[in-house]
């Protein structure tokens, strides 16, 4: 059984169908990159996977004991966040919120999970620092630690390297690869094709023309027609943001 399996998934954004009859599956341990030009429905697909958007048609099924709200999500940063007064540990532990009902305070176990993930991402020295004092790469690591608090199985990363310099980007990819190798499945939305091909096991390519889409392993992708868009294909779509 796959972790996630979609069948004939159809999604719309502001009454426009952006994804039609999409079939793909993610197995435990996979590293799937979702690529495609702006307006191809990447963000809408992310929302649907998180359960924030109802499919117009088709289905998304979760298997292997994955619960939808236990997906570790790393959203794109907003400008309001960058100067937010919050300590690193406050941000990281907020990832534990999905596993607790209405209890008002964090339990010992949740504090332990947060501490483990802080250490896992090398943030121990920063844990009492304020989020707004950190560099872009450090902030992204904090958000990754938070996402790991929310999940044991699946990370969903929405353009995690946007705005980072090349050194920090490489570091971030290294971290994500390490997390993937430790058994966490990764789904990443990205514009960075070169890195997608380098790290991903599978590629899902969304295109405006629904018939040109692609889903398969990274090796198959290079052989296919879909990779043509790498060479500067149509990029005149509208942004879905």
């Amino acid at each position: 059984m796959a972790l996630i399996k979609t069948e004939k998934l159809t999604l719309s954004y502001e009454n426009m169908t952006v994804i039609e009859n999409l079939n793909f599956e993610v197995k435990s341990g996979d590293y799937l990159c979702i690529v495609g030009e702006n307006g191809s429905g990447k963000s809408t697909l992310v929302k649907a996977l998180l359960g924030l958007k109802k499919p117009v048609g088709g289905s998304i099924e979760f298997g292997d004991g994955l619960i939808q709200k236990e997906i570790g999500y790393l959203p794109q940063q907003t400008s309001a966040q960058r100067d937010f007064p919050a300590s690193v540990s406050e941000v990281v532990i907020s990832g534990c919120l999905n596993s607790r009902g209405i209890r008002p305070f964090y339990s010992v176990k949740e504090r332990k999970t947060a501490a483990e993930n802080i250490e896992r991402l090398g943030l121990t020295e920063l844990k009492n620092r304020s989020y707004r004092e950190l560099s872009g790469g450090q902030q992204q690591r904090v958000l990754l630690a938070r996402a790991l608090c929310a999940t044991k199985k699946l990370l969903l990363l929405d353009e995690p390297v946007t705005g980072l310099d090349p050194m920090v980007t490489a570091e971030m990819y290294g971290l994500i690869e390490k997390i993937n190798k430790s058994g966490v499945t990764v789904i990443m939305v990205t514009h960075d094709m070169a890195s997608a091909l380098r790290y991903a096991s599978h590629i899902l390519c969304l295109t405006e023309n629904k018939d040109d889409g692609f889903f398969g392993t990274a090796a198959e992708f290079l052989e296919s027609n879909a990779s043509n868009f790498l060479k500067g294909g149509a990029a005149n779509g509208q942004d879905t943001e």
Binding site: L50, G51, L52, Q68, K69, I71, Y73, P75, Q76, T78, Q81, F84, A86, V91, S94, G95, L97, N98, L143, R146, A147, A150
Partner: peptide, 10 residues
Amino acid sequence: FDESFAKATG
């Protein structure tokens, strides 16, 4: 801090 993340955690 982060509405999108909060929504995703249910």
